[in-house]
Structure formats: structure tokens, C-alpha cells
Write a protein that binds this DNA or RNA. Sequence first.
DNA 1: CGCCGCGATGTAAAGGATTACATTCGATCG
DNA 2: CGATCGAATGTAATCCTTTACATCGCGGCG
Lengths: 333, 333
Amino acid sequence: MPTIIEVAAMAGVSTATVSRVLSRPEQVSEETRRRVLEIVHTSGYAPNVAARSLRTLRAAKILLTVPDISNAFFASVIRGAEEAARDAGYSVVVGDTRHDPAVEDQYADMLSRREVDGLIFLGHRLPARLAALLARKGAAAPIVNGCEYSPEIGVPSVHIDNAAASADAIEHLIALGHRAIGVITGPEISPISRDRLAGAIAAAERHGLGDRLLVRIGDYAAESAFERTADLLTRNVTAIFCFSDEMAMGALSAIGDAGLSCPGDISVMGFDDLPLARYFQPALTTIAQPKGLIGRRAVELLVDILRGVESPSQQVTLQHELVVRRSTAPPAE
Amino acid sequence: MPTIIEVAAMAGVSTATVSRVLSRPEQVSEETRRRVLEIVHTSGYAPNVAARSLRTLRAAKILLTVPDISNAFFASVIRGAEEAARDAGYSVVVGDTRHDPAVEDQYADMLSRREVDGLIFLGHRLPARLAALLARKGAAAPIVNGCEYSPEIGVPSVHIDNAAASADAIEHLIALGHRAIGVITGPEISPISRDRLAGAIAAAERHGLGDRLLVRIGDYAAESAFERTADLLTRNVTAIFCFSDEMAMGALSAIGDAGLSCPGDISVMGFDDLPLARYFQPALTTIAQPKGLIGRRAVELLVDILRGVESPSQQVTLQHELVVRRSTAPPAE
DNA sequence: CGCCGCGATGTAAAGGATTACATTCGATCG
DNA sequence: CGATCGAATGTAATCCTTTACATCGCGGCG
């Protein structure tokens, strides 16, 4: 693989011309352009990105960290982000932090080292090392938060209205006639879990059922819901609302193990609308998040910041949707 | 964020010394080292990776392409790869190709541009642009294949013994007493699907049941199995073996929709052992692949090549395991 | 006492692309 | 016909780090 100097020599032009042929072809005469491109193709020349990014101070890369890459929800977000990034001329480095602050910090360092131009983090924790950067640059810091949203950290973010979405779920169950509803939340520190819980409680209270919500704390993973459900089943709830589809899967599994049936004996709702949700047994009623779009908009927001767009939006709220399938039904009387 | 020149000036030393403090501290005197590190910390200096990689000709990045990032199987492989990469001082760029050859080529270009040091591709298709590179550099080409394995492309790879694994599955079903077994495969072009099918047929033939296998072609996704299962149910099979857990989920869904029960009326087996498999209804009997390990070993193999290790292994075959849960039982008589 | 060797540090080239500024040359205009 | 303009191209500085090689000073040895 030759360098631009060799290509220039072969084509009998200067390196500047070769560079222009590749990045601003309209500035080069038809004939020169053809000659240079010919050489570029036959020689298989491709610009060295390290040299380019050293000169331009751009890495053309975006870092996207997720707390758990094996969660299908994040996978869809990643896909949306990748597409948008490709459209904007960036590639995406995915970092799986496994909820580990040390790993988060490691990835955050990539930003300091200019290894990537910006960071999108999904989850609720801003890596400690970035607090300083954020304080210094404010809204110009190339950092965007996806899914979660905590006003206190002061980072632009892309998310749905979690409280309203959760309220929709509870309204759906109440409308079906459920009065004793179990709720399995995310971790207490998760702002979106708090928002969802607040929305659920508010909806219940609107129907005078504020004290009929049985809340159990989960962690978005199936296992936790499996355990909480076993407990809830002894409390005579007729429906369970889980803050993730994975937990709904755990709940369904526990219900089956208990010899009960869904939705005959007990209704179950999830949250996320994973691609597999319609293949759950029974097909899962859930709240759909626009997963791909969250990723896409997060990238677009970040790219705006990187391009120095004036006052990029601070908060992007996307639409959720109640998807009714077979796992919810009126309670048995 | 200062450059190394500014740090050197502040510490009253040359840039060479600063560089040495950071990369070969033992060459620098105790006192100088302390003084430089002090400045490094207070100034928040971090080396610019573009400059470093321009000079060292290393990007410290590995590209990992997957055909479908929303497939939980790949997620686990990615996680293993990331861990191993971090251990070896690399970070991982994840590319989701969505089975699109054009996207595959785009990612392959990153290798030509030296944007990454090496490529691991999961799936069966070597990007067209890399054939030339491979021909030129042979085994020294920094390319590794994961999961799939086609001898003809001549790339080192990491995988399980798919034929043997598949045979184990069929043996399990036959041992339970099943005689008419449906098989839902992956796409015909997929080498691992072919291997699995060959293994399944061989196992059936060992029991004189070579002609009792009803084969239907799927694509590893739930939807395809959902459709094929509806068809298989009209053919009086008593068990269905799917070449992925996702397809098993589709099969279970179709069985439920048909008013049948698993494993009472029909047994179902999957392949992969996704984290959620034990929460399927019923908990899924499947073949476990060492997903994280596949990713890890692929990275290790690639790093060996990058380090110029003599004759790195060409093929790494890892152990699979039959995991028996609740979705398989003797057939109803 | 002079020289050698060694540890610590400095000097400067190299790595490859981009781009501001300079130059060239033919065309256009008054 | 000379001045001017603009399109096309070239020259060379610059981005920041790493590292081969040079230098310096000092202790030890003959």
C-alpha cells in the first residue's frame, strides 16, 4: 500500500493534487483527476487515517458505551446509532461497560486522548473523569446520553417520556379491570426506573388505586423478575407490569412454574418491545420504545455538537407506543 | 489539554523524557519521573493517539463485524472479544453488517486504511475486497473468522464442532424415543448450517432413521421458524430441532398457537443456549456454545498474528455442551 | 591523570496527510 | 497590448509523538 507521495510521483503531480482529487475533486481538472484516480485504483492507495486525523484533529469515530451489550434492547439502539454514524461519516466504537465504573472510566479516557470525537453513553452514570470536561466545556462537550435522562448531570439526551409510558401501561391494566397490580422496577438508582414508577403510581392514584400497587425492585434482567414474581404470586395480584421485556420473560417463566397461566390467571406487561416479544408465550403486551431511533437521534445530536451547531437541542423526547398482544386480559373474577 | 511539548517545557525536560516517563519509566531517574508525572496529572495530559499511531503504525484497534447485532448470540461473542481485547491493549470497533455485502466492504476498507490493525468477522462471507489482501499476505493477514468456518476461504477461525454438536442433539431426541423429527436449519449458504445438517443426518442414519428427518430451511431468526413449524406440525413430527434458540422460540410460539403443548405433544430443541433460554416456556433444551470464549479466542488468535507469532493455529475448535431442560420429553404414544 | 563505560537526558528525524499561500499560465478586457 | 483574473497546480508548514542516535557528566580503572 503506497503513500500519497508515491501516488503523486506516479501520477506526475504533487501530493496536494492527489489529496484534492480525493477530497475536493471539483477543484481538479478533468484530465488530472482521471489520471490520479487511475493510479489510486491500480495501486490500491487508501489514505492513512492516523495521518489524516493528526492533521485534521478529527478521529471520525464515536464511542458508544452500553451497560450490557447482551441486552437486546441496547443492540437495537446500537444498530440505529451505527446507521446514523455511517451516514454522517463516522464509525462507532462500542464499549460494553458491564455496569463497571472502572471500565466506564477506561472508555472515557478514549475521549481525552482524542481517540474518538465524541461519546454517547447509554445508562445513567456519567463516567467520573468526564465531570471535569463537562464543567469546562458545558454544552459544547461532545457527550450525549441515551435512554436515561437525569437533569442533574446536564448532558443532552434522547429518551422517551418514561412516566407517561408507564402510566399508559397501568391505564391499560386498569381499563381491563385489574385492581391489584404488581410492578417490578429497575434498580433504585436508575432515573428512568424512578420516572416509570412515578408515572405508574400517578396513574394508579388517578383511579384511587394508589395503594393497590405492589412494588418490587428488579434489575431489568430476567432472573430478578423470576424471583420477584414468585413472591408477588402469593399476594393475590392479577397483573404484573415489568419495566423490561426481559423481566416479563422471567415473570412468565415463574408463572408457568407456579402452574398458573397467562393471561388466564394473571396478566403480564413488559417494556421495550424487543424483537422477540411477539414470540413470547403468550405474545407480550408491552410499551414499544423507538430503539433504533434513539440511537440515530443520539448520534445526530452528537454530530451537531461536533459541527458546532448553535444551541443544539438539550433534550429529545421520542414517542412510545402501547402494543397490545395476548399477555393481558381481564382478570378472572 | 496540553501537548507533550508543553508538558516537557513545564517540567523543564525534553519531549523524549516525557515520552519515556509514560512508556518506559524505568529508563528515567526517580526524581525526573516524579516531576513529570506531577505535571502530567495536574495538566490532564493524555497522548494524542493519532500522532502515536502515525509514528508507531499501530492503531490499537480491532474491527469485529457481525451480521446481525440484535442477535443475542453475537452479543455474547462481542463481550468476550472486548474483554480479551482490553487485556491485550486493544479496543474493539463493532460493525453491524446486516448481511449486506456493501456494508461489509465498507468495513473492510477500514483495514486497508490502517484504521484498525485487524479484522474478526463473524459469519460466513469474507468481504470481497479482502480476498486480494489475503492472497498477498496469506496466513500473515490480520484476519480471523469466528463461529463459521469454511476451509475454502483459508482464514484462521474459531468455532465448535458443529456436526458433532448437531449429532448430539439428534441422539438426545432419538434416545427419548422420537422417530419423526423436524429440523429447521440456517440458510443454505451458511457452512455451519450445512455442517449441522450433515451431523444431524449422520446421527439419524446411525439409527436407521435417515429418511425420518424432515428438513426445512430457516434463517436463524424466530419468524422463519414460526412459519416452518406451522408446516411441520401437519407432518406428524414429534420433535423439532432448530439451529438457533431464536428459531426455537418461534417454534414454541407456533406450537402454542396451534393449541399444542411442548413437551407434551411435541419436543423442541434449540442451539446456542442464549442467556434467556432457561426462561423460555418451557425452559429450552439446547446445545450450548461457549460464546464468550469464541470471542476471546478469536481476539487472541488475531493478536498472535499481529505480534508475528510463528505459525499461529489455523483452527481452534471449542467444546459444546448438551443442556437438557424442559422442552424435550418422550413422545406421546 | 586520562580514558572508558554507563546512566540520564537531549536533539531531531520520521511518520503521512491536509491546506494556506504562492505560483503559473492562458484567457479576457479595456 | 498590458493589466487582471481565475483556474489549476505546486510548495512547504503543520499536526504530535516516538525513538535512533548524540551528548553529557561522573565514577572507576589502569
